[in-house]
Amino acid sequence: MNIFRFLGDMTHLISILILLLKIYATKSCSGISLKTQELYALVFLTRYLDLFTDFISVYNTVMKLVFIASSLAIVWCMRNHPLVRRSYDKQLDTFRHYFLLLASFLLALLLHEKFAFQEVLWAFSIYLEAVAILPQLVLLQRSGNVDNLTGQYVFFLGAYRALYIFNWIYRYFIDPHFTRWIACVSGLVQTALYADFFYYYFISWKNNAKLQLPA
C-alpha cells in the first residue's frame, strides 16, 4: 500500500459517501444516471469475486464489502425508493449502456492476464469501469445545470483513478517487474474521459460560478 493508492481509495469512498448523502439528504437522485450506477455495481461484483477466496488484508476486504453494498444500495434506492425513483431523470438517462457491457466483455475475452473465469471477469470489470461514467457525463450535459453534490460526486470519482495512476507509477519505480498494463491503460482512458468535466469544474471553481457543461 502506498499513499497514492490510499488517497485514491479514500477519494473513491468520499465520492460514494457524497452520492449517498445527496440521495439520503435530498431524497432525490436528479442528475444521477441509474445506468452508470448499475454498471458500477456490476464492476464491483465481477471484480471482487475473490472476496471470499483470497484474503489480502482487513482493509481490502472491508473496502470491497463497502463498495459492493453501497453500489447495490444506490441502485436499489433509485429503482425502488418511492421518493427517490420519482426524481430519476429517466428521459435524460438514455445512453445505450448495453453496448458498453458487450464491448467490455468482448475485449476481456481478447485481452486478459490469464484465460480463466475469474481473470476474464476481472479484466471485464477493469474495462467496464473505464467507460461506466459515460452515461453519467452524457446525462450531465443534457441536464445543463449540475447541482453541487452531483458535481462533487463526479469530481471525486474522476480524481480517484487519477491517483491510482500515480500509484502504478510509484509501484513501477519500486519494482520494475511490476506491470499492470490492463489496469494502467484502462485507468488512463478512464481519467481522460473526465478531462472536459475537470476543465469545466475548474472554471466553475475559479469563477466561483455554477458548474455548467456545454450541451
Binding site: R47, D50, D54, F67, R180, A183
Partner: peptide, 10 residues
Amino acid sequence: LPEENDHDEL
C-alpha cells in the same frame, strides 16, 4: 510481493 496476477488493489 503477491504473484503477478494477484489483484491486491481495489
